[in-house]
Each structure stands twice: as C-alpha cells, then as structure tokens.
C-alpha cells in the first residue's frame, strides 16, 4: 500500500492505495470522478483520458503512485455556464452518439488546440491516432475541432 496525494479539478485528496493500481481506479472508485471511463485498460482507446498539467494521459495504465501534477477531468474543464471552447463546439456540432468515448476526444482536442489552434486537417487526423469511437462520430469531431480552433485563434 502507498499513500498518495492527488490534485483533481482543483481539489486535493490523500488516499491509501495499492502501489500498482492505475490512476483510473483512484479517480473512479475512490474519488467518484466518473468521466474518465474504462475502455480497454491498454492505452488503446482514450476513453480514460485526463489532463495532467495540460497533457493528455491515459489513466488506465498510469500507476497512481507515478502521478505528478494537476489532474483535470472533463468535469473540471468547463461548465454549461463557462464552457471550454472545445466543449461548446462539441455541443454546437452535436458530436456524441453514445458519448462513452467523448471524454478522450475532448481532452485531446483541448491539449492539441491549446498547443496550436492553427493545426491543419492532416495534422489533426494524425494527432488523433489511437483514439477510438465505435459509433462513428469522427466526421462530427473534425467539424467541432475546426470550429473550436476558429474560436481559440481569436
């Protein structure tokens, strides 16, 4: 067992955990932060993504004891009153179907556009490599990310 302190969406939590447990289970099981979701446990789909100091990380494979930085979940990114431009664009373009994977796409989009809102279509497609959507929302995601990019350029 190990003692860890996690800072999630601006709140600090100290937990007693198995040292080999991935961050995902600390967030979901111990802290009730449900937006990162289990999809594969293999870092192959992105459904479990959180931002750590702004960088997307697959929480299903990162040992909780290896976390170093401020964790942001989808819920901590914005709200209906103050949406992140990416969240607003995902609503405007009515992106999700079942929405189980949406968390990962939003998180990667945020990191990508905050790094470079001038990203090209080809670069966008490349940077999304390794994210999965089973329902087929890909074309709507591209539309939304371009829309968010336009907002964030200004």
């Amino acid at each position: 067992m190990a003692t860890v302190t996690l800072s999630v969406d601006g709140e600090s939590h100290t937990l007693e955990v198995d040292a080999d447990m991935p961050l995902l289970y600390a967030l979901r099981d111990d802290l009730g932060k449900n937006n990162p979701r289990f999809g594969c446990g293999l870092a192959q789909c992105g459904a479990c993504t959180v931002l750590i100091d702004g960088t997307p990380v697959r929480s299903c494979v990162l040992p909780v004891t290896a976390v170093n930085g401020e964790i942001t979940t989808l819920n901590g990114l914005g709200s209906e009153a103050e949406p992140h431009p990416v969240q607003q664009a995902f609503i405007d373009e009515q992106v999700p179907f079942c929405g189980y994977c949406t968390n990962g796409w939003v998180m990667y989009s945020v990191a990508m556009l905050e790094n470079n809102p001038e990203v090209t279509d080809a670069e966008m497609r490349r940077q999304f490599a390794g994210l999965k959507c089973r329902c087929g929302s890909h074309t709507a995601i591209l539309r939304a990310v371009k829309k968010a990019a336009d907002t964030m350029k200004v």
Partner: peptide, 21 residues
C-alpha cells in the same frame, strides 16, 4: 432539435451504467 442529454455528456455530468454505485 438538438439532443437534450448532450450537455450532460460533454460537461461530464451524465451518469452511465459504469457509474452506478
């Protein structure tokens, strides 16, 4: 008409089957 549940999905307040406790 837009779907009414999409804001909950996108702001992370939608409850999924995996979230039931």
């Amino acid at each position: 008409a837009p779907r009414r549940e999409l804001p909950a999905i996108i702001f992370g307040t939608q409850e999924y089957i995996v979230d039931i406790k």
